[in-house]
Design a binder for these strands. Sequence first.
DNA 1: AGGTATTCACATGAAACTATTCTCTGAGTTAGG
DNA 2: TAACTCAGAGAATAGTTTCATGTGAATACCTGT
Length: 401
Amino acid sequence: MGDRGLLGFFEAYLSKDSIFADKKVLHAGYVPPHVLHRDAQMQQLAGMLAPALKHEKPSNIFIYGKTGTGKTLTTTHVTQQMEQLAADRGIPLRIIHVNCKLKRVADTEYRLVAQVCKLLGHEMPATGLPTQEIYDALQSLLDAYSAVNIIVLDEVDELIGKTGDDLLYNLTRMNAHLKRSQVCLVGISNNSLFTDTLDPRVRSSLSEEEIIFPPYNAMELQEILRHRAQAAFASNALSEGVVEKCAAYAAQDHGDARRAIELLRVAGELAQREGVPAVQLHHVDRAEETIDADRIFKLFSTQPEQWHLVLHATIVLCDKRQGVSTGEIYEWYHQACKQHGQRPLTQRRVSDILAEMDQLGMLATQVISKGRYGRTRDIAINIPPSTLEQIKAALAKEFSA
DNA sequence: AGGTATTCACATGAAACTATTCTCTGAGTTAGG
DNA sequence: TAACTCAGAGAATAGTTTCATGTGAATACCTGT
């Protein structure tokens, strides 16, 4: 496309009516003015947190439910309302919401505490200080101001699984050292069994109160989607049955509303790119494929070279036959490393990489015992064909020579 | 034939190690008054 | 003498290695009939 053609393309693009009226409504993190089908949980949470408005420390709360069941949304909604009220009435209340999964922001004990300090208005160095020092800093920041502080730890299971429960132990004990202010913890987790892994002292103090978020059913999902769609799309931009189909896909996936909304957004983007005036049912099917393929390829492309080599070995061997073992893959990989002048990783590490790939859904593995012939993983590729071709091409380019 | 022990090929867990990135601190150096 | 520079110590972290232990069914071996 020459400059003239490009200009023409952009002009045509601008003159065309957009399918979307307000696309941000479909983005993760958007908080709608009304939260649907979570009245009971909202009431519960509001009731538990309300003492904070009277300068009393609420009980620590533990919230759990599967992904896309509205935990974060509901919590954000409730705490935003409280913040608003507190601001209007001059009540000293601070809400700190941290996502413990954010890479390089709050995914270790040190970083999380540093992030809380930052949200309280004091930037801490990313590394270089002893952990105790940032706890001290946090304590003085909290105590600088006589208030109730509600610290929401979103996806807390991710962090604790990685770094242990020292963080929760220290945070729950912090109140004993604070003179003027108080801290209330709200832990949010996808994993209901998470608290079982905690130290009993931490468990009893973190889950003084519990709220469970059940999955949405198909009808609830439909209503949620319809509300979002109404705000997000231009009128008549959705064909009959699109919302229902998105809801049905997500209902299969344990009632994940986030997924349903993403599906709707991607279907909309596909339709828009095609230049058709409305989203059709087949766009939803394609959106479903695109989301998976994009996710896998993005995962692949952010991994290091050694990881690629292991995947390369797995793909090559699985092409010959299904059900290869860790040992076979390691052997192939070892040879390939020699050929490319790389220092090979140990089998222990490669075994972990294969387990990782399994977790990410790229491989289907099963630990089997072959009796006298040992115990190993039975490994098969679990990548959709079109994505697999894409990955093969990328690998061929990377390791050609 | 039936029961028990052995064996294999890794899986899995924990601890230790290495390299990198960052802050803090104190000694040495420099420039201006 | 204050301001600046720089090296070294100490800390967090990611990625890995090393070492130790666990696993489970096919196979080998043993025992009694």
